[in-house]
């Protein structure tokens, strides 16, 4: 029995030393996972997830603080991608976080008073204009985050859904009737 005790002690001591050494020697700094998550997020910077941007949300997911179903612009597919990346189960969107069709902001030029509030709100600098002058959305750079809509004092910004055109038309997934009509 004494032998057993000695063996246990020796093993414990040895392994303990190795572990103690390794824990300091191989400490990992930073979080590469957050980068990967960020790459999956749609970068609308819309803040609908409750975080001030895609990066902070990514970091929160990486830390396990945020759920993966908080990003409506990413759509269900985005959740699937996150679930796959993190090796967790798919989670449907909650009641108040439903994805909407893609849209770009549009400023009604007749109503705009040139207050610049929307320019300050735009997370990707996609609005050009100046004080007391009419503003314009650079449609190609608009992410459709809707952050410019609430600050507008005259409600001149509307979200226009992106319609299907020849340039963005896609072939459909073939669908067939499974049951033959008899």
């Amino acid at each position: 029995m004494i032998t057993a005790l000695w063996i246990m002690i020796a093993l414990a001591a040895l392994l303990g030393m190795i572990l103690g050494y390794a824990s300091i020697r191989f400490r990992v700094e930073g979080n590469p996972l957050a980068e990967k998550i960020d790459a999956v997020l749609p970068q609308t910077q819309c803040g609908q997830c409750g975080y001030p941007g895609c990066k902070p949300y990514a970091e929160a997911i990486a830390k396990g603080e945020a759920d993966i179903n908080l990003c409506p612009p990413g759509g269900e597919e985005g959740i699937h991608k996150l679930a796959e990346l993190l090796g967790v189960e798919f989670k449907p969107f909650g009641e108040n976080a439903q994805p909407k069709p893609k849209a770009v902001a549009f400023i009604d030029e007749q109503t705009c008073i040139g207050c610049t509030l929307c320019i300050q709100a735009c997370p990707v600098d996609a609005i050009s204009g100046a004080a007391k002058q009419m503003h314009t959305i650079i449609a190609a750079e608009c992410t459709g985050c809707e952050l410019c809509v609430p600050p507008c004092p005259v409600d001149c910004i509307s979200m226009v859904p992106i319609e299907e055109q020849l340039t963005n038309w896609k072939w459909r997934y073939p669908v067939f009737k499974l049951r033959q009509t008899s």
Binding site: L15, G16, L19, G20
Partner: peptide, 9 residues
């Protein structure tokens, strides 16, 4: 009382 490094062991 268990330090993190030897938690699993």
């Amino acid at each position: 009382y268990v330090p993190n490094e030897i938690r699993i062991p």
